[in-house]
């Protein structure tokens, strides 16, 4: 296991350097000058532009800028934005919000997805099964901003059940609606995976034996089928958590939740290279760590999976 972990960590470092460089280069190659556009449609004086360009090394070649950035990272310095604000502070301010949203959405997705999948699997081939498939796929196919804005108008404006926007009312009121919408988009996959798994498990020999033995069906499903069907769904959901922590740009924007997704969006829009890489780096780390955890977990859950 330790060799396996070591290998994953080394891979992680390589992926990390490669990805950050690619992102850095991509932002660098965007058209337009990030400094010149800082003042909106009111251009900055030339001397200010020149000074800021020099201060943030924008006149140097890409590779030098990147190496300087990487050097900063080694001393845990994420750098500053072009108007001089600390990137680490901004990330620290945004993460709690995104984590709250992501975990809420994830919990909803897990709970609803597993329940729907189980029901569909147990009623395999019936009208219930088809209805669940139809509804979840339909939900997935509605564009997210349509869903978001409609939900805002219905639940926020007309019914007044939840706040329309912002997080000032705190968890859970302010997070329920956006989290539910985010969760809707993963439901089709989660419930399908669970359903398939349940159907397979129900047909397996050991379940047949349990039935023959006369075990109550509540216990068969609740204990044995559930446990044996959970592995693929958990793998999917673990990766899904990585996505969710990446922030959901559209939902965060519509619901005015100041999370990491919005920060990334603004950073790209204003061409703040170091900020884009800073956010992306944090996301990559989350993803890689989640991935390693999933690998470790799945080998623990299912001893047949070996990594050495």
């Amino acid at each position: 296991m330790s060799r396996f972990l070591l290998r994953r960590v080394i891979e992680l470092v390589i992926v990390f350097i490669g990805v950050t460089f690619i992102i850095y280069a991509a932002v660098f190659s965007l058209p337009g000058d990030p400094i010149a556009s800082m003042g909106g449609d009111r251009p900055l004086p030339d001397n200010v532009v020149a000074r800021l360009r020099a201060e943030y090394r924008l006149d140097e070649p890409l590779i030098m800028q990147y190496l300087h950035y990487l050097g900063g990272l080694l001393t845990f310095d994420l750098g500053t934005t072009y108007d001089g604000r600390s990137i680490a502070d901004q990330l620290a301010a945004r993460w709690p919000t995104t984590i709250a949203l992501a975990l809420t959405a994830w919990a909803l997705e897990l709970f609803i997805g597993v329940v729907l999948g189980l029901v569909a699997g147990l009623r395999y081939g019936t009208l219930t099964d088809r209805t669940i498939l139809f509804v979840t796929v339909l939900a997935t196919s509605i564009p997210v901003f349509v869903m978001g804005v409609s939900a805002q108008l219905i639940f926020g404006l007309e019914l007044g059940w939840v706040p329309i926007a912002g997080t000032s009312e705190g968890w859970p009121q302010a997070y329920v609606l956006p989290a539910l919408i985010v969760a809707l988009y993963g439901l089709a996959s989660a419930s399908r995976l669970m359903r398939g798994s349940v159907v397979d498990t129900l047909r397996s020999d050991f379940v047949r034996t349990l039935v023959a033995k006369g075990m109550p069906s509540r216990q068969i499903v609740g204990v044995h089928v559930m446990r044996n069907s959970a592995a693929p769904v958990l793998t999917f959901l673990a990766i899904e958590l990585g996505f969710l922590l990446g922030g959901t740009i559209v939902i965060e924007g519509i619901f005015n939740i100041h999370g990491v997704g919005g920060l990334l969006f603004d950073a790209i829009r204003t061409q703040q290279g170091p900020l884009v890489v800073g956010v992306a780096t944090a996301l990559i780390l989350v993803f890689l760590v989640v991935n390693v955890l999933v690998d470790v977990l799945s080998s623990v859950l299912d001893p047949r999976i070996r990594h050495d």
């Binding site: 709250a100 975990l103 994830w106 997080t167 705190g170 968890w171 859970p172």
Partner: peptide, 11 residues
């Protein structure tokens, strides 16, 4: 999870 999340909520 819900309880874990509450700790991160705004105040």
């Amino acid at each position: 999870l819900a309880f874990a999340v509450t700790a991160c909520g705004d105040s």
